[in-house]
Measured scan of single mutants.
Amino acid sequence: NLYFQGLKYMVPGARVTRGLDWKWRDQDGSPQGEGTVTGELHNGWIDVTWDAGGSNSYRMGAEGKFDLKLAP
């Protein structure tokens, strides 16, 4: 699974964008943008601060869902 392989790169400072299971509307800005991981992966959740200004926790394994992917 590509998403599980990418988890080791989901570290503080990593750049991310919305992924396969995104369901959080425009939390990442409008139009959709990139963000920066600000915390360690914990119980399948990870913290992100978006360039647009907001921050929140997103699923990276929790509930079998992956809200994020590494930015290109």
Results as ranks from 00 to 15, higher is better:
1 N>D: 15
1 N>K: 13
2 L>G: 15
3 Y>T: 14
3 Y>A: 14
3 Y>Q: 15
4 F>D: 15
4 F>V: 11
4 F>Y: 14
4 F>S: 11
5 Q>V: 11
5 Q>M: 09
5 Q>E: 15
6 G>W: 15
6 G>S: 14
6 G>N: 14
7 L>A: 09
7 L>H: 08
7 L>N: 08
7 L>Y: 09
8 K>C: 15
8 K>Q: 14
8 K>R: 10
8 K>I: 13
9 Y>A: 09
9 Y>W: 10
9 Y>F: 11
9 Y>D: 11
10 M>P: 04
11 V>I: 13
12 P>E: 12
12 P>A: 12
12 P>C: 15
12 P>K: 13
13 G>R: 03
13 G>K: 03
13 G>P: 03
13 G>C: 10
13 G>Y: 04
14 A>N: 05
14 A>T: 11
14 A>Q: 09
14 A>F: 03
15 R>N: 01
15 R>H: 04
15 R>G: 02
15 R>Y: 02
16 V>L: 00
16 V>T: 00
16 V>E: 01
16 V>C: 03
16 V>I: 05
17 T>Q: 12
17 T>F: 05
18 R>K: 05
18 R>G: 03
18 R>Y: 07
18 R>V: 07
18 R>E: 01
18 R>C: 07
19 G>K: 06
19 G>L: 05
19 G>W: 06
19 G>N: 08
19 G>V: 07
20 L>A: 11
20 L>F: 12
20 L>V: 13
20 L>P: 14
21 D>G: 04
21 D>V: 05
22 W>Q: 04
22 W>S: 04
23 K>E: 13
23 K>W: 07
23 K>V: 12
23 K>Y: 06
23 K>R: 09
24 W>A: 07
24 W>R: 04
24 W>L: 05
25 R>L: 15
25 R>G: 15
26 D>M: 08
26 D>W: 06
26 D>P: 05
26 D>H: 08
27 Q>D: 10
27 Q>Y: 06
27 Q>S: 07
27 Q>H: 07
27 Q>A: 08
28 D>H: 05
28 D>E: 06
29 G>P: 05
29 G>M: 06
30 S>P: 10
30 S>Q: 13
31 P>L: 08
31 P>E: 10
31 P>Y: 08
31 P>I: 09
32 Q>I: 09
33 G>F: 06
33 G>S: 12
33 G>D: 07
33 G>Q: 09
33 G>C: 12
34 E>V: 14
34 E>T: 13
34 E>F: 14
34 E>C: 15
34 E>K: 13
34 E>I: 14
34 E>H: 12
35 G>S: 02
36 T>F: 04
37 V>Y: 01
37 V>I: 13
37 V>A: 03
37 V>W: 02
38 T>S: 10
38 T>I: 13
38 T>K: 08
38 T>R: 08
38 T>L: 09
39 G>R: 10
39 G>F: 04
39 G>I: 04
41 L>T: 06
41 L>A: 08
41 L>P: 08
41 L>S: 07
41 L>V: 09
42 H>W: 10
42 H>V: 14
42 H>Q: 13
42 H>R: 13
43 N>H: 13
43 N>F: 10
43 N>C: 15
43 N>A: 10
43 N>L: 13
44 G>C: 04
44 G>S: 01
44 G>I: 02
44 G>D: 01
44 G>M: 03
45 W>I: 03
45 W>A: 01
46 I>L: 11
46 I>D: 00
46 I>W: 03
46 I>G: 00
46 I>C: 05
47 D>L: 14
47 D>E: 14
47 D>K: 14
48 V>G: 00
48 V>A: 01
48 V>P: 00
48 V>S: 00
49 T>Q: 12
49 T>M: 13
50 W>V: 00
50 W>H: 00
50 W>D: 00
51 D>R: 02
51 D>L: 04
52 A>L: 08
53 G>K: 02
53 G>Y: 04
53 G>S: 03
54 G>T: 10
54 G>K: 08
54 G>F: 10
54 G>A: 08
55 S>W: 11
55 S>R: 13
55 S>M: 13
56 N>Y: 14
57 S>D: 04
57 S>L: 14
57 S>I: 10
57 S>K: 14
58 Y>I: 03
58 Y>E: 03
58 Y>H: 03
59 R>V: 01
59 R>H: 02
59 R>I: 02
59 R>W: 03
59 R>Q: 02
60 M>Y: 11
60 M>A: 06
61 G>V: 02
61 G>H: 00
61 G>F: 00
61 G>Y: 03
62 A>R: 04
63 E>H: 10
63 E>P: 00
63 E>Y: 11
64 G>F: 07
64 G>T: 04
65 K>N: 04
65 K>R: 09
66 F>K: 03
66 F>W: 12
66 F>T: 05
66 F>M: 07
66 F>E: 03
66 F>L: 05
67 D>Y: 02
67 D>H: 02
67 D>T: 03
68 L>T: 00
68 L>M: 01
68 L>N: 00
69 K>G: 07
69 K>D: 11
69 K>S: 13
71 A>Q: 09
71 A>Y: 06
72 P>D: 12
72 P>N: 14
72 P>K: 12
72 P>L: 11
